[in-house]
Amino acid sequence: MSEVAVAVDDLVVEFSSDEGPVRAVDRVNLQLERGKILGLIGESGCGKTTVAHAMLNAVAEPGRIVRGRIHYAGHGDLLGMSEEAQRLFRWQHVSVVFQASQNTLNPLQRIEAQIRELARAHRISNPNALVGRAREICDRLRLDGRRMLDAYPHQLSGGMRQRVGIMLALLLQPEIILFDEPTTALDSLSQESVLRIIEEIHAKEGISGVFITHDLGIVAEVADVVAVMYAGRIVETAPTGTLFNAPRHPYSRALLNALPRLTGDPRAAKGLTGAPPKVVGEVAGCLFRERCRFQTAQCKMAEPVLTSVDADHRVACFKINEEDGRASV
């Protein structure tokens, strides 16, 4: 087994609300191996972005990490570090490519000014060198470096924004990059260009990554291992090939089946009705059962836990052997 770059242990994140604390992330365990890309998929609101923010101890108010450990190889538990050590850890060791990069930049500053600010924040003695490095990365990403650094965030066009976002993520040479829906809202061609870049930097620099998306098609392109999240819990993890060829959890199967295809009977694909439940207080039973085709009395009684069904393949479901009636992909 190869080295683990980061391990998330027993992570619980709650958001306070009028009805009581809402569990956005519940007892999540994840392991990212060095040099690998872990796909984290699920519908919006399933807690996948919260997991990413928790991995940097930057969960937005009113959310808070209730318990858990974020163990980085060579650094220990992030949550145990001092505030200042955490601040310096962020971006130097783990960076993020955000969904809408231009919104994640201060609208009043040119990109170069923001890079210089980053240099100051991370106590980099030669800010000019960092700006130079930014220009180099721009070249590699087929961006006009001078123009990009001189631009204000709103002046960047669709595909450029995400590449500038990637440039910023690479700037401090982190070991891990979290990709938070970096291609959502992009056209298929821009999406492809971003994915190619991610593959390229992954191959060249051996960066480890977590790729968060609700689009299974994209995850299949980039991830080595996939974890499926539902209502704050991981319901299935498997190597990418296994997950897409032989998914076991009814939710994974439903997600896969909801993808409109370009071949075969178009009506074979089916959308997923209903919405995930909001988790307030104690939960009894499987959270997916309301939307599940295979639910039985057992699903109401107890909550299934992640269980190994195969090497590297774990599923949280009582009905994993249920046949779908349709051939999986």
């Binding site: 595909g159 492809e192 299949a220």
Partner: peptide, 27 residues
Amino acid sequence: QVLLSSIPALQAGRDFMPQKIVPRSFE
């Protein structure tokens, strides 16, 4: 052809577009 071949293989289907057609520029 370029648009269709940019669709992730999983969604496109296995035997679809075996030959990837890449535009000269993504801009």
